[in-house]
């Protein structure tokens, strides 16, 4: 019997889609799947639904109004202590990556992040696949340890496990949060710009290639006319040309539209991580070696402003 602990997360009051992707991955690794969630919002989740393959749910309330890496680390550690799993599966995002390595270091676990595949080989040994030396080469990695292995999986690589009817077997653990001395939370800054990238059907996304704020206005007009949502790469937001709410990528919003048109975006890994799940991707960039073309279905090496001009003429 091997037990897999999936460390899930709550998003907008529900168990996140990403958590259900982790469950799908976990099912191939062991026969008992326990979902563990440590969150300040856990008391407010009304619908702790049953999910295919999950034996039981163990929760901890962190009682912390803020995300605090140290509290999250100790709460997650308490879940591991309680379950004693052979494999621990977590989401690969900024929050989880900020404390997962510390757990692995303290407990001397096998450890890997940005895992794109995980399975057991013919001898039942755990194997993971992740990129090395940039994005072109992948490595299959094994662990020499007898201790458990902690893996952080990349989003959108597995189908989310289904929500099913019935009541989930739920245990709540007591936990007293201890925040770190000498760390003061001052304020949260929420993204500005009232746009909904996450549920957008079609996104026109702009990169550095747009060149000027006047050119952005042209795209704003086009987006309005065509009924599409305007996204942007990080450099554009950093330069203050568009509000942060438009940002697609790892520090921005992860999007899965039906159509993603990338105008003048070269495709930094953080950006690709946020948009490669789009159903159709069209990339427009004058540099034919831009990494964006590696994830695009259609591409054109042409000046984006000339295309904007033609779009305007055709509409």
């Amino acid at each position: 019997m091997s037990t897999v602990l999936v460390i899930g997360e709550i998003e907008d009051g529900f168990i996140s889609d990403f958590t259900r992707e982790l469950i799908t991955a976990a099912i191939a690794l062991g026969d008992t799947i326990i979902l563990g969630i440590a969150s300040s919002e856990i008391d407010f989740v009304k619908d702790l639904t049953n999910i295919t393959g999950v034996e039981s749910l163990v929760t901890i309330s962190t009682h912390s109004p803020h995300f605090d890496a140290e509290i999250q680390r100790t709460a997650t550690d308490a879940l591991i202590d309680h379950i004693q799993p052979e494999v621990i599966v977590m989401p690969f995002n900024y929050k989880a990556a900020s404390f997962a390595g510390a757990i692995a270091e303290k407990r001397n676990l096998g450890f890997a992040t940005d895992v794109v595949d995980v399975y057991r080989d013919s001898d039942g040994l755990l194997r993971i696949v992740r990129p090395i030396y940039g994005s072109r080469v992948l490595a299959e990695i094994g662990f020499s340890t007898q201790s458990p292995v902690l893996v952080l999986l990349r989003a959108s690589k597995w189908e989310p496990a289904n929500v099913i009817s019935g009541v989930i077997n739920h245990t709540h653990l007591e936990f007293s949060a201890k925040s770190v001395d000498g760390l003061k939370h001052i304020e949260f800054i929420h993204p500005t710009g009232e746009i909904d990238l996450k549920s957008a059907n079609i996104i026109f996304s702009l990169g550095r290639g747009v060149g000027s704020t006047e050119n952005i206005e042209k795209f704003e007009v086009l987006a309005e006319k065509m009924g599409v949502t305007l996204g942007a790469s990080r450099p554009l937001v950093d330069a203050g040309w568009l509000p942060a709410g438009h940002q697609v990528g790892q520090t921005g919003t992860t999007v899965k539209p039906n159509l993603y048109v990338a105008f003048g975006i070269s495709g930094a890994i953080q950006h690709l991580a946020g948009m490669s799940g789009a159903k159709k991707i069209l990339a427009i960039n004058t540099d034919e070696s831009a990494p964006i073309f590696a994830v695009a279905h259609f591409g054109a090496t042409v000046d984006m402003m000339e295309v904007a001009e033609e779009l305007n003429n055709l509409l």
Partner: peptide, 28 residues
Amino acid sequence: QMKIQRVFFKEVSRTVQMIESDPKIVAT
């Protein structure tokens, strides 16, 4: 504790289909 078993090229599952570099064709 980590050991690389093997390295391999990422399969390019998506081969990008290039459109003619003409702004009008691209816009269409």
